Each structure stands twice: as structure tokens, then as C-alpha cells.
Simulated assay, not measured.
Amino acid sequence: NFYSSCCQKIKWIDWIMDGFSITMAILYLVVCIVGLAGNSLVIIAILKLDKMSSSTTVYIFNLALADGLFMVGLPFIASQNFQNQWMFGDMACKVVMVLDGINQFTSVFCLTVMSIDRVIALVEPLRFARWRTPRCAKIVSAFLWLFSLLTILPMALHFSADHGLCIPDLISDDWWLGVLSYTFVMGFALPFMVMMASYVALLLTLRSQRLRASAQNQENHRLERQVTKMVVAVVVVFGICWLPFYTFNFCSLYQNGLVLTFTRAFEFVVLLSYSWSCANPILYACLSDTFRRHFRTLLCPVAKTSPSLQCNTECADSGDLVQNRLLTLIN
């Protein structure tokens, strides 16, 4: 991805065409196909069935769009890793890295904003109702795309293919350490902390509301368990996919020589970071009843029943505010 060339500042070894490289090429292809198909399905489901009727689905739409576009740069990165050569020219190198960085950061930022949105949807649904409209969500999403561009543009423009590889022009080790630290904080540490804090507040609120609710309200308890599973899955998968990648980036600063084992391990964690973008649709399909119904409706048209299957994340007229807010959260 945007930083996958960082350890290439160390002398590259000759790439050996063996079973590992072929396997990695196949895995890159699988991740790309699954990511594009899954996120395209989410986008179509929201546009066709939900029509972005709530702030939650606006953020999910932008998250799926960023994740899907993030997959577009994967074949270019896979080609360079497979052939140990960039074959698309210097301008394409800069464009791919800019687009790659925008989509990567937008994906993380959207997920972070979604975590905040979910908390206020449950804790203060009426107080912040006017700020949780689709129109406001679209404005926030547009700002996130712009902020992502401003965040990565200065670094992305340092990439060039002058030496046969699309890699950054390193000014010094200190400069590269600063870049890594900056991107780690902006692209992982701060968003992860915000998500963790939001989800802790979310779960505490859910537990408090459950204790106040009737013991016979089994449906709310079921939804709480579903939300809890979704929360844990999102946080764990995000950490698993991105923490090894940043760890290897920092480790590359202290490598005196690039050995085959480190090269292969680094390529694997790059693929792991890309797999994050195809993980969200899978999480939706596995853990969200609403998206399962949407996907079933799109993939099996004969199974359509009624428009009532549309995602109704903002319904406040059902008489059970807690249950409806929980339905919003599991979307």
C-alpha cells in the first residue's frame, strides 16, 4: 500500500520465482477480487435499498467506497512485488501512491467517525439528532476525503520510479522515521484510541440500559450481544491487519541488510493490511442481520419479500428507542 515501499530503502535482494511468490500473487488476486466484489455489493445495497437514508449508512457508503478504491492500487503493488520492478512510469507511480494513500486514510477516518456516531446515536439520540442527518454526514464525509488528501499529499509526491521501483526518495533516516511516526499516529494510533474509547463508552451504555430494562426484554439482550460481537470484531480485525504492518515499517529502519525472510514477512504484512479493506463486507455479512438481508435480496432477487427489508437505521417511531438505536449500531 501507500507505505509498502518503505523497507525498499534497504538494498533489495533478487526476487526468486518460487512457490512463495506464486502463492503471494494468488493471494493478492484473491484479496483484490473479494475486496472489490464485497465493497461493491455494500455500495449497491446502500444505494438501491437504503438510498443513504441515515448518517450511519452514509458513513458505511464512504467506507465501502474508500475500501473498494483502495483495492484498485493492489494490482500495481502486487506487480512490483512479483517482478521487483515498476513498469508503469513515474507519473503513474505518483498517481497510484496518492490515490492509495487517500483511500487508506479515508477508510480509517470513516471508521473512526462511525464509532463516534454510534456512541452519540445511543447515548444522546435526541440532543444530537440534527447533527446526525444524511446531509451532515455527507458534509463530514467530504471533509474526511479532503483531509486525507492533505494528510498524504506531501509524502506521496516524494515517491518516484527513477530507480526502477516506485519508492520514496529518502532524504535521510531521520526524515523517514518522522514520516513513519507521523503516519503511524495519524493512520493507526489516534484512530484506534478513539475507536477503543468510543466502543468502551458504547458497551458501558448498553450495559447500563440493559440493567434498567425489563428482564423479559430478550430482544434487546440479543441485539446487545450482536453489537458486542461487532464491536470486538471491528477493533480486533483493525488491530490485526494494521499493527504488524507498522511494526515492520519501524523494524525496517534497523535492518542492516534485507534478508529473504524479512522480505517475505514484510510482503505478507502488506497483504494483511490490504485485507482490511475486504474484511468489512465480510463482517457485515456475518454479524449484521440487516446487511445479510440486503445481500440476500441483491444476490437472490426471487427471495425479495417487501420494501420493509430496507435498512432503517433512523426509525424513531417504533416505540422502543433503545432497540432501534441498537439496530443502527449493528449496521
Rank of each mutant, 00 (worst) to 15 (best):
Phe2Gln: 01
Tyr3Phe: 12
Ser5Leu: 03
Cys7Ile: 14
Trp12Pro: 12
Ile16Met: 10
Ile16Glu: 15
Ser21Gly: 11
Ser21Gln: 15
Ile22Gln: 13
Thr23Val: 07
Ala25Gly: 00
Ile26Thr: 09
Leu29Cys: 11
Val30Arg: 04
Val30Met: 03
Cys32Arg: 02
Ile33Ala: 13
Gly35Lys: 07
Gly35Met: 06
Ser40Trp: 02
Leu41Met: 05
Ala45Asn: 02
Ala45Cys: 05
Ser54Tyr: 08
Ser55Leu: 00
Thr56Ser: 08
Thr57Lys: 08
Leu63Val: 00
Val72His: 02
Gly73Met: 03
Gly73Thr: 06
Phe76Asp: 04
Asn81Met: 12
Asn81His: 14
Gln85Ser: 13
Trp86Ala: 07
Phe88Met: 09
Gly89Pro: 09
Gly89Lys: 06
Asp90Tyr: 03
Met91Leu: 15
Lys94Gly: 00
Lys94Gln: 08
Met97Asp: 01
Leu99Val: 07
Leu99Ser: 06
Asp100Asn: 09
Gly101Pro: 03
Gly101Thr: 03
Asn103Gly: 06
Thr106Ser: 15
Phe109Thr: 00
Phe109Asp: 01
Asp117Ile: 01
Asp117Cys: 06
Arg118Asn: 10
Pro125Gly: 07
Pro125Glu: 06
Leu126Arg: 04
Phe128Tyr: 15
Thr133Asp: 09
Lys138Asn: 10
Lys138Ser: 11
Trp145Gln: 06
Thr151Ser: 12
Leu153Asp: 03
Pro154Lys: 03
Met155Gly: 07
Leu157Arg: 01
His158Met: 10
His158Trp: 01
Ala161Glu: 05
Leu165Ser: 15
Pro168Thr: 12
Asp169Trp: 05
Asp169Ala: 09
Leu170Ile: 07
Ser172Ile: 00
Trp175His: 09
Trp175Asp: 07
Tyr182Ser: 04
Met186Ala: 15
Gly187Tyr: 06
Phe188Cys: 11
Phe192Glu: 05
Phe192Cys: 11
Met196Thr: 08
Ser198Ile: 00
Val200Thr: 00
Leu202Ile: 06
Leu203His: 11
Leu203Cys: 11
Thr205Ser: 14
Arg207Gly: 06
Ser208Asn: 14
Leu211Val: 14
Arg212Glu: 13
Ser214Met: 12
Ser214Glu: 12
Gln216Ala: 15
Gln216Pro: 07
Asn217Glu: 12
Val227Phe: 02
Thr228Glu: 13
Val235Ile: 13
Leu243Met: 11
Pro244Ser: 09
Tyr246Gly: 04
Ser252Thr: 07
Tyr254Phe: 14
Leu258Phe: 08
Leu260Ala: 10
Leu260Lys: 13
Arg264Asn: 10
Ala265Thr: 10
Ala265Arg: 04
Phe266Lys: 06
Val270Tyr: 00
Val270Lys: 02
Leu271Asp: 01
Leu272Ile: 00
Ser273Val: 00
Ser275Tyr: 02
Leu283Arg: 04
Ala285Leu: 10
Leu287Arg: 00
Thr297Ala: 14
Leu299Phe: 09
Val302Ala: 14
Lys304Tyr: 15
Pro307Cys: 04
Pro307Phe: 10
Leu309Phe: 08
Thr313Met: 13
Cys315Glu: 10
Cys315Gln: 12
Asp317Val: 09
Asp320Gln: 08
Val322Glu: 14
Val322Tyr: 15
Gln323Gly: 13
Asn324Val: 07
Arg325Leu: 12
Leu326His: 11
Leu329Glu: 09
Asn331Leu: 06
